[in-house]
């Protein structure tokens, strides 16, 4: 039994007649391994940063002073035009609502898809246990494809507007939430399910009445967290693709000088929206998980 603690290889078992020496040898060996890993890690990080800097259009040290320059330029222009800000706020609210709607609809649709996918992919609950790997791989693939790829392809087919973004985010959400939901459902108590089975409930009734009530608080909390993430994703998709406040931001940025007041207004609006949503959802998630 003692040998196991020192490793399985019988040729390298320490001499137990001198435990102090054996312990110190083990410590030295551990330190050496740790040191080697640390050196390798530092070397890798340093060479990685150097490589990345070399491939970059501008160097790190040249760019560092500019980090402040651009925001400073933007803010100073916005400050001189600060009288315009309330008007721009009001004008940007519809795009903000569109961004939030994209996130909300995508979260809803994704969560609904994730509910069935996760139950079908959970051991002990699955309708067709043999198909569990299929559903799991489906969720993996949905998670792996970045939203932007689907969104850009759908823009080509469907034309602009918010729908491509909704579909793209919903697909990703389905995969991501499906995995989390399935992890929660795995820990669900099976007794209610058995009880329902004993009175002749079919699969969907067993899930709806036996499992969902148990997992609902956790699922809701994950869905809220996902909504926070999706608000950000929807802003980013707007910036790269079309629709919502991200698109307005891109247009204002491309215009450059002269419309920096608009950039600041949109930045602020987005920032405030994200902070408010995060705070509210944090509050509710605490309530849901702690049950108070």
């Amino acid at each position: 039994m003692v040998d196991v603690a020192y490793g399985p290889s019988p040729g390298h078992r320490p001499n137990l007649s001198d435990p102090r020496e054996a312990y110190l040898a083990m410590v030295r060996r551990k330190r050496m391994y740790g040191g080697i890993i640390l050196v390798l890690f530092i070397a890798f990080m340093a060479s990685g940063w150097m490589l990345a800097e070399e491939r970059n259009a501008g160097g790190f040290w040249n760019g560092l002073p500019n980090v402040i320059d651009f925001p400073a330029e933007v803010f100073s222009e916005a400050w001189t035009n600060r009288a315009n800000l309330p008007g721009i706020f009001l004008r940007s609210v519809p795009s903000l609502i569109e961004t939030l709607n994209i996130a909300a609809v995508a979260t809803l649709l994704g969560a609904i898809a994730a509910m069935s996918l996760s139950l079908l992919a959970t051991r002990g609950l699955a309708r067709w246990p043999r198909l569990i790997p299929l559903f799991r791989r489906t969720m993996d693939a949905l998670r792996a494809i970045p939203e932007i790829v689907i969104a850009l392809m759908l823009i080509y087919i469907l034309g602009g507007g918010p729908v491509p973004a909704v579909i793209a985010i919903a697909l990703h959400t389905g995969g991501a939430l499906g995995k989390l939901f399935s992890e929660v459902a795995e820990n669900a108590d099976l007794k209610p399910v058995e009880g329902l089975a004993s009175v002749g409930a079919n699969w969907s009734q067993r899930m709806w009445l036996g499992v969902i009530p148990q997992v609902a608080p956790n699922w809701l909390s994950y869905a809220l967290l996902r909504f926070e993430i999706n608000v950000r994703a929807s802003a980013i998709l707007g910036f790269v693709g079309e629709g919502g406040i991200g698109h307005d931001l891109k247009l204002a940025m491309q215009w450059g000088q002269g419309r920096y007041d608009e950039v600041v207004a949109i930045f602020l609006l987005l920032f405030l929206a994200i902070v408010v949503i995060d705070t509210v959802s944090d509050h509710f998630r605490h309530k849901l998980v702690k049950g108070t």
Partner: peptide, 14 residues
């Protein structure tokens, strides 16, 4: 990302 890419230019370091 937008602010940094203005400062450091396009590339992996940004």
């Amino acid at each position: 990302t937008i602010i940094l890419s203005r400062a450091f230019g396009p590339g992996p370091m940004t």
